[in-house]
Nucleic acid binder design. Structure first.
Length: 488
RNA sequence: CGGGGCGUAGCGCAGCCCGGUUAGCGCACCUGGUUUGGGACCAGGGGGUCGGAGGUUCGAAUCCUCUCGCCCCGACCA
C-alpha cells in the first residue's frame, strides 16, 4: 500500500481515484468501464442497502425480481423512453459459442442468432409493465408496491468508479396506482425517504426539488430529485423518483376496473438509487488522508489497535472493550496483527475511513486510560476504561452529526444567488457550487446556459417560494428561482 | 468519436533519443536478526515471453510498420 494520495487541491479527480484504489473500495476490472467492488466498498453498499430496504418495507413495499434481459421490441413501446436509452444499450444477438474452426479459441456460432435480440436492462420499466398487465385487473389489485435490487447496464462513453460505471448495482421501485394523486404521493414519499436516508445515514445534505422537462427521466411526467454538492463544487444527482403518469400503462395496455366497473389506465411511479451513492459518500466527507465514512454506514465503526503490538495483557483489555461495544450494537474490530507497527496501522485505518480508533498501550493502561482518535477531526483524547463504551457510543453519534454539519455548512456556503448573467458565469467558473437565480422556464434558455457555462439546471427546489423577477439569461419574467450547477 | 499521455516484476518508475555483457531502482514479497507509543532498520533472497505481431540488423526494451489495451481531457449520461 502506497503512502501518498494526491491532494484534493492539486487534482481533485485524481484524489478521488486514489481514494477508491488505496482505501480498497474498488479495482478496475478486465472489462472496460466495469469495476470490481472490493469488500470495503461493497460493505458500505451493503449497509446502504440494508437501511434503504428497511425504509422501503416500512413504507409498504415488497421486493421481487425481474429478468436481466428485455426483448428489443419492449424498449420501443414508449417513444420517449427509447429516445432516452437507445444509445446506451448492450444487445445480445447470439446464444452459443463454438470452437474456432480456423484456429485457436472460440467464436460466436453464426447459427445461434436470436430471432429477436435481447437487451441487457438499462432499467426495467418495460419488462415490469409488460408483467403488470397480467397482474392488474381490478382496483382491488392496486396499489402494487414493488422494489427490486438488481444490476443494470448502460453503455456510457466515459466511466468513473462508482459515479458512472457500465454495469452498476441499484434498486428500482416500480409502483402502480389507481389514481394520479396516489401515484404522485408515492413519488413524493420515496423522494422523502431518499432525502432522509442521504442526510441521516450518509450525512450528506441534499436539496429536494424537481427536474425541468429537459432533465427529466425519459418517459416521466415529473422527476423528483435529491441533489448533493461535492467538495469540488460540482453537484451530484443522488436519487430520483419519477411520476410516470399513464405513459407506461398506455404503452403496455395496463388497465384496471374501478369500483363502477369502468376501465381506466393505471398510474405509475419508478424510483432508484445506485452504487453512485458510494461515490457521493466519498466526495462529501473524505480528506487528504483518505476515506471518511459516517459511522452509521461504516462496515467497521471502531478499530482497537494494541500498542506496540498484541500482548496477552493488552489483548485481554481489547477483547473486553470489544465485547462491551458489541453489546451496544457497535461494529468493532480488534487488530491482532503482530507483524505491522502501530504507525502503519494508524495510517491504514485512516485511509480506510474507520470512524474511531482506540489505541491501547501499557503506558496509558497503567493509568486506566486508552487513547481514542476520531477520524473526522483527527483529534485524540485519553479516556478512562471505566466509561469507554458510553464514550464511544456518544462519540459515534457526535461524528455522524459533525460530518453532516460540516458538509451542510460547505453546501450552504456554496449556494450563491445571482441576478445577472455575468455574475452567473463568474460564480460557476470561480467559486463553483449551486447558483440560484430566476429562469424563464424555457428549454431554449436552459440549453443556452448549458452551452455557455457547462452548468445544468439541477432542480427547481421544493421549498423555494414564488417571487417575481427576470430570467438571469433572457430577462423574461420568472416567478421562481432555480438551481444551476456543474454536475457529475 | 476527437485531443493528449502511457504499456518494462504485484504496484510505482528509470533505461529508449544515440541498438551491444547477465534489463535496473523504490515499494511490496520471502528468510534471519535487531527493533516496536504515528507509515522501523540491517543482511540475504525470489520474482521479467520489456503489451502483441511482423520487419530492419551479426545483434532490438531501444529503430520501422501494424495492432491491442489502459489512463486523462472533451462530446453523452445516474
Amino acid at each position: 500500500m502506497a503512502k501518498e494520495i494526491t491532494k484534493r487541491e492539486d487534482n481533485y479527480s485524481q484524489w478521488y481515484n486514489d481514494i477508491v484504489k488505496k482505501a480498497g473500495l474498488a479495482d478496475n476490472s478486465a472489462v472496460r468501464g466495469c469495476m470490481v467492488i472490493k469488500p470495503l466498498g461493497f460493505g458500505i453498499w451493503e449497509n446502504m442497502k440494508a437501511q434503504l430496504d428497511k425504509m422501503f418495507k416500512e413504507t409498504g413495499h415488497v421486493n421481487a425480481y425481474f429478468p436481466l434481459f428485455i426483448p428489443k421490441s419492449f424498449l420501443s413501446k414508449e417513444a420517449k423512453h427509447v429516445e432516452g436509452f437507445a444509445k446506451e444499450c448492450a444487445v445480445i444477438t447470439h446464444h452459443r459459442l463454438m470452437n474456432n474452426p480456423d484456429g485457436e479459441g472460440v467464436v460466436v456460432d453464426p447459427t445461434s442468432k436470436l430471432d429477436e435480440e435481447l437487451i441487457v436492462r438499462p432499467t426495467s420499466e418495460t419488462i415490469i409493465w409488460n408483467t403488470y398487465r397480467d397482474w392488474i385487473q381490478s382496483y382491488r389489485d392496486l396499489p402494487l408496491l414493488i422494489n427490486q435490487w438488481a444490476n443494470v447496464v448502460r453503455w456510457e462513453m466515459r466511466t468513473r468508479p462508482f459515479l458512472r460505471t457500465t454495469e452498476f448495482l441499484w434498486q428500482e421501485g416500480h409502483t402502480a396506482h389507481a389514481t394520479k394523486e396516489e401515484a404522485i404521493t408515492e413519488a413524493e414519499l420515496i423522494h422523502e425517504v431518499y432525502a432522509k436516508f442521504a442526510e441521516e445515514y450518509m450525512a450528506m445534505p441534499v436539496i429536494k426539488g424537481y427536474k425541468s422537462e429537459n432533465e427529466r427521466f425519459a418517459g416521466a411526467d415529473n422527476t423528483f430529485t435529491i441533489e448533493a454538492l461535492m467538495q469540488d463544487g460540482k453537484a451530484l444527482q443522488a436519487g430520483t423518483s419519477h411520476f410516470l403518469g399513464q405513459n407506461f400503462a398506455k404503452a403496455f395496455d395496463v388497465k384496471y376496473s374501478d369500483s363502477n366497473n369502468k376501465e381506466e389506465y393505471v398510474w405509475a411511479t419508478s424510483w432508484g438509487v445506485s452504487t453512485r451513492l458510494v461515490g457521493g459518500l466519498i466526495m462529501t466527507h473524505s480528506d487528504d488522508a483518505g476515506l471518511v465514512i459516517p459511522p452509521r454506514l461504516a462496515p467497521t465503526q471502531v478499530v482497537i489497535v494494541p500498542i506496540p503490538k498484541p500482548s496477552e495483557e493488552i489483548m485481554k483489555v481489547a477483547d473486553d472493550i470489544a465485547a462491551k461495544l458489541k453489546d451496544r450494537g457497535i461494529r468493532v474490530k480488534v487488530d491482532t496483527d503482530d507483524k505491522k507497527r502501530p504507525g502503519f496501522k494508524f495510517a491504514q485505518y485512516e485511509m480506510e475511513g474507520v470512524p474511531v480508533r482506540i489505541g491501547i498501550g501499557m503506558r496509558d493502561l497503567a493509568n486506566n486510560l486508552v487513547e481514542v482518535a476520531r477520524r473526522d477531526t483527527k483529534e485524540k483524547e485519553s479516556i478512562s476504561l471505566d466509561s469507554i463504551d458510553q464514550h464511544i457510543d456518544d462519540l459515534l453519534i457526535n461524528i455522524q452529526n459533525n460530518l453532516f454539519e460540516r458538509a451542510k455548512k460547505y453546501r450552504d456556503d456554496h449556494i450563491t444567488e445571482v441576478d445577472n448573467f455575468d455574475d452567473f458565469k463568474k460564480v460557476i467558473e470561480e467559486k463553483g457550487g449551486f447558483v440560484k437565480c430566476h429562469w424563464d422556464g424555457t428549454v431554449e434558455t436552459e440549453l443556452k446556459i448549458k452551452e455557455l457555462t457547462k452548468a445544468t439546471l439541477r432542480c427547481i427546489p421544493n421549498d423555494e417560494k414564488e417571487s417575481e423577477g427576470k430570467c438571469v439569461y433572457s430577462g423574461n419574467p420568472s416567478n421562481k428561482k432555480v438551481l444551476f450547477a456543474k454536475a457529475y
